[in-house]
Amino acid sequence: MTAKLSLRGVRKRFGAHEVCKGIDLDVFEGEMVCLIGASGSGKSTLLRCINLLEPIDEGAIWLDGADISEPGLDPQPVRQKIGIVFQSYNLFPHMTAAENVMLAPRRVRGRSREDMRPLVAELFQRFGLGDRMEHYPDQLSGGQQQRVAIIRALAMEPEIMLFDEITSALDPELVGEVLDVLRDLRLQGMTMVLATHEMGFARELADKVCFLDEGRILEEGPPEALFAAPREARTRAFLSRVL
């Protein structure tokens, strides 16, 4: 079986500072992979590279066997297949929640609002936001905004979803409602890559957990193994700090 998404030797530099120092990663269809590690270990940058928001300096990224890291490649068709949700939601503040969700399908896929309504209403319903469609982002709580951001990415019907520490900016009591959404997506069989600090969640649902340290995947494996018996001293040190 070939991987849905493959990274080989991915390196990314910002000026003299190398953030990703040769990363290999395989994500299979329907898998949920969690990236853990301290702030600045390269998790967010790696996700931004997969989505082509940042061009990589060396290495390659394959999606369904096609090299998407080819310099000069049009990133837009790729981004339509790979959705990303950011830590700071990044909703468009001048549009209602429903308009936020419908903008990309309308402009990129040429769908009409009327056409979209049933699907959008169903998504809002499913994630407990049925009565929030016409609200503006500043009228919603952080957890609600983040769920709208997830719906916005899902409305493009991506094949892979990337989540960049999407609960880190939330008040603790709002984290649960967003994790429930991820649980729901997991059951639907969505292929997902998460950068996360929610260790309990990673342990419960991930197929594979990767520990990033200074731009490298230092250790990876199924959550039971990695959390219960980490091989590397640095992994143990990190886990003892966060667990």
């Binding site: 989505n51 928001l53 990133p75 837009q76 068709p77 981004r79 339509q80 959705g83 990303i84 950011f86 700071s88 990044n90 909703l91 468009f92 503040p93 001048h94 903008l103 990309a104 402009r107 990129v108 916005r152 990415a153 493009m156």
Partner: peptide, 28 residues
């Protein structure tokens, strides 16, 4: 910049990003 990133990640073109995301906020 994060507004442009969000628009780009959804597959919007630069033109549409300017027209639907950046300009309406900028003008306001």
């Amino acid at each position: 910049q994060s507004q442009r990133s969000a628009a780009a990640s959804l597959g919007l073109s630069d033109r549409d990003t300017m027209r639907f995301v950046v300009l309406p906020q900028a003008i306001r």
